[in-house]
Computed example of a mutant assay.
Amino acid sequence: MSYPPPQRVPSGPRRRALFASAASAALLAGCSDGGGKPGKSAGGSQSVSRRARALAARESAGMVGRYDAVIATHPQVAGRLAPLRAEVVRHMEAFGGTAAKGHTGTASPSASASASAAGEVSSTPATEKDALAELAAAERALSDRRMAALLEVPGELARLLASVAAAGAAHAYLLTEGAG
């Protein structure tokens, strides 16, 4: 009597498990500011928080610019990208950035200018698949930078960064889902 060969089980953790553990770690990392006073941390100051917020707002504005560039080049994905773009605008506003009033499909001129000045918006790939992959890579890279910044900022800002980093990782996943 022969035994059936063992079923192949993929090695390593699944994508969902990695995402869930990264999001949990981010939220736990932001639970304490290391000091007992609001707005202050063991090695940080309010100026550190202001700089971190300003950088996060600029980076979010740059991401809005990236979404706008992809939508302008590939209008057929506007419906798919609109909710993600709107969330990035909310992230920018949460960090103290401002969006132009009444604009739902394009970033404010200052947001697009900030993105261009930061060198974050380059020419959009000609194919929809490549444009979405590039956008997902940008979301992933920004999420990684925000996760790394968690240790440098006080508690409340760390929690906000963790939440927005997790959302960015989810955006990257959603942008690549169905692209295969």
Results as ranks from 00 to 15, higher is better:
Ala137Lys: 14
Ser11Asp: 05
Ala115Trp: 15
Ser49His: 00
Ser47Thr: 09
Thr127His: 08
Gly97Ile: 02
Ala99Lys: 06
Arg8Val: 09
Glu139Pro: 03
Met92Val: 01
Pro125Asp: 04
Leu142Asp: 05
Ala126His: 11
Pro109Trp: 15
Gly155Ala: 13
Arg58Lys: 09
Ala100His: 07
Ala23Ile: 01
Tyr3Ser: 09
Ala136Thr: 03
Gly79Glu: 10
Ser45Asp: 10
Leu160Thr: 03
Ala113Asn: 05
Ala162Tyr: 01
Arg15Met: 04
Asp68His: 13
Arg146Pro: 01
Leu157Arg: 00
Gly105Gln: 15
Thr124Lys: 08
Ala131Thr: 09
Gln7Thr: 07
Gly34Ala: 05
Ala29Asp: 06
Gly39Ser: 01
Ala162Met: 06
Thr176Lys: 12
Arg145Ala: 10
Gly36Leu: 15
Val77Asp: 11
Lys129Met: 07
Arg146Ser: 04
Gly97His: 04
Leu84Asp: 00
His91Tyr: 11
Ser163Asp: 03
Ala131Met: 07
Pro75Val: 13
Gly35His: 13
Arg16Pro: 00
Leu151Pro: 00
Ala94Trp: 03
Met1Lys: 12
Ser163Pro: 00
Glu59His: 04
Ala94Val: 00
Arg80Val: 10
Ala23His: 08
Ser21Tyr: 02
Cys31Asp: 05
Val89Leu: 10
Arg145Cys: 01
Pro13Trp: 14
Arg50Trp: 11
Leu150Cys: 07
Ala61Gly: 11
Thr73Asn: 10
Ala115Pro: 11
Ala78Phe: 05
Ala26Tyr: 01
Arg53Gly: 01
Ala169Lys: 01
Arg90Ile: 03
Thr104Lys: 07
Ala72Asp: 14
Gly65Asp: 08
Ala78Ile: 03
Arg146Leu: 02
Met1Val: 06
Pro5Ile: 05
His171Leu: 02
Pro13Tyr: 03
Ala22Met: 07
Gly43Met: 12
Glu120Val: 08
Gly97Ala: 04
Pro125Glu: 04
Ala167Lys: 09
Ser114Thr: 04
Leu157Thr: 00
Cys31Trp: 07
Pro75Asn: 13
Ala118Glu: 14
